[in-house]
Design a protein around this nucleic acid. Sequence first.
DNA 1: CGCACCCCCTGCCGGC
DNA 2: TGCCGGCAGGGGGTGC
Length: 270
Amino acid sequence: MPELPEIETIAVGLAPRLAGRQVRRVLVHEPRLRVPLAAGFAGGLEGRCLGDVRRVGKSLVAALDDGRRWVVHLGMTGRFTLRAAAMPRRPHDHVVVLLDGDEALVFNDVRRFGRMAVVESAALADEVGHGVDPLAPAFTAAFLFATSRARRLTVKSLLMDQRLIAGLGNIYANEALFHAGVRPRRRAGRLSRRDSERIVAATRRVLAAAIACGGSSISDYRDAFERSGTYQEHHHVYDRTGEPCRRCRTPIRGCVIAGRSSFYCPSCQG
DNA sequence: CGCACCCCCTGCCGGC
DNA sequence: TGCCGGCAGGGGGTGC
C-alpha cells in the first residue's frame, strides 16, 4: 500500500506533533506482525521522549532520547494515526502508543504485513535498507544507467528493487514509466542514457506531485490524521486496464511482471 | 542471475 | 443469496 509519497505525507504530518512528546505507555494488542514484535518492544519505548520523525525509503523512523530509533514499516495495509487517547479501540488496532497530552499513536494493519522495531542507531541502515532515495541528489540518470548495465531484469522490477532504489512501489513504478515513455517490460540493461534521464526526471516529477496530493488512496491508505490522498485522480495507467490513455486515448494494457500487476499505454510507451 | 511460485494475512469483489 | 477463487499498495524465501 503505502509507497514513498504516502510515507512522506505521514512523516511530515507527524513530525511537528511528536517532537518532544513523551511515551507514557505502549499497549500491544497483537504482536503477531509479519515479523513478530520483539518481547522488549514496549519497554524500549515507554518513558522515552520522541525527537525527529522522518521517512527513509518506505519506513518511518522516529528518534528516541536514548539514541535509539523506532522504525515502522506499514506493509500493504498498515496505518499509523494520531488520535485522542480516549477513542475506542478499532478492529486491527495492534499497537497503541499512549503519549502525554492524552493522545495516542495507533498502528492499525488489517493484513499484519507491517513491521515495527526499536533499534540501535548503528543498526538503522540494516533495518531500513541501503537503497538510494529517489528524491535524493544521488538518484541521477548516471546512477540509473550504471546500475542497470548488464542486467536482464525488467526496468520495472529494477525500479521496485528496494535494495537499489528505496521508496518506489507498484503504483509509482507504473506511473513513472508512463511519464518517461518507457515500457515496463524493457530489459534494464537495454536502457539508453536518454531513457535513464527520462525515467529519473519522470520519477521525481511523479513523486513530487503525489506528495503534493498527500499520496494515493486506493482503499486502505490514510495519513496520520486519517485523511485520504488524492493522487489516484491523477493516475495515468495504474489500475486503468482497458480505459483510454489520458494522453492519446489508446486503451491501457494490463499484464503481470514478476508477479505484480503492471499497466502501460502501448502507444505512449515505446 | 532472474524469475516463477510459494509464504505471511484479511477483506473485497465478481462470477457462478 | 451465498460460496469460492482471485486479487490487493509490502517483503522474503526457495528452487529452477
